[in-house]
């Protein structure tokens, strides 16, 4: 099986440790990972802000970069959801038959990390050791677009040394929402405040999630509060030994 990593633009530029952890984890499980460097961004930010036209070249680049792999793994539910649901829609809106076909092909082979581990590799115990008190925030796009259900929790429960505590009102959005965080900073912050209050209530030292974007938002808020709770991506926990 030829496995490619979709780094995601956010991990590439701001959270390289998340992508390194994803590679490290998959290699530890015995898979060779390729990283086609032609890749950049899935274009979700453009699509969701009202710029599908500007997303088209990014989608073209994405399907070119990932042609020929058996599986494409991304440490992000949100980017995976965009590839799976939005790329085809944008391709349809411009009526490009070959792009419609190639986006469908790439979409069918793209997996969010927890999906890839549990559904394709069929592992839940990845041999990780992580001796910390952790609470898990299920991101909206993992829950309601990809329907990953409790896959991430199945993986986390098998981690040795972990003290996994349930997050109250876990399924509520953290308030990030891409450019929403910038266009509607007051509502975004109000949602963040409630999310952080719930995180603090668990007395966890780490808030984990499967999307760097939501973690950037929650982590940025926690850092501002100086409460000594940090955000860590699911991949980093699963890669720890």
């Amino acid at each position: 099986m030829r496995v490619a990593l979709f780094i995601t633009c956010l991990a590439d530029g701001l959270y390289p440790d998340v992508a390194k952890a994803t590679v490290g984890l998959l290699e530890r499980l015995g898979h060779e990972v390729e990283v086609p460097l032609q890749q950049s961004c899935c274009g979700q930010m453009h699509i969701n802000t009202g710029y599908p036209r500007e997303a088209v070249p990014l989608i073209r680049n994405h399907v070119d970069a990932f042609a020929g792999y058996d599986a494409i793994v991304a440490p992000s539910a949100s980017c995976t959801a965009s590839i799976r649901h939005q790329h085809g829609e944008v391709a349809s809106s411009i009526g490009d038959a070959s792009l419609i076909a190639s986006t469908a092909e790439i979409a069918a082979r793209t997996y969010e990390l927890s999906e890839f581990l549990t559904d394709v590799l069929e592992v839940t115990d990845v041999g990780a050791y992580y001796p910390h008190r952790v609470t898990y925030h299920p991101t909206c796009h993992s829950l309601r677009l990809l329907r990953v259900g409790d896959r991430p929790l199945q993986l986390l429960r098998q981690v040795r040394g972990i003290d996994l505590v349930e997050l109250p009102d876990a399924e509520s959005c953290c308030g990030f929402g891409g450019t929403f965080a910038l266009k509607n900073p007051d509502v975004s912050t109000a949602m963040l405040a409630d999310k952080m209050q719930n995180v603090l209530q668990t007395r966890a030292e780490v808030c984990a999630a499967g999307d760097s974007s939501c973690l950037m938002h929650i982590g940025g808020g926690l850092s501002r509060l100086k409460v000594g709770v940090r955000t860590v991506h699911l991949a980093e926990i699963l890669a720890s030994t």
Binding site: I7, L182, M216, G220
Partner: peptide, 24 residues
Amino acid sequence: PPLSSWISSRDLPAAPAQSFRDWW
């Protein structure tokens, strides 16, 4: 703007020394 909206309630992430692709 738009960074002003971000830092009203959130710290910016710490920029890493190297991108993932350069590391790779």
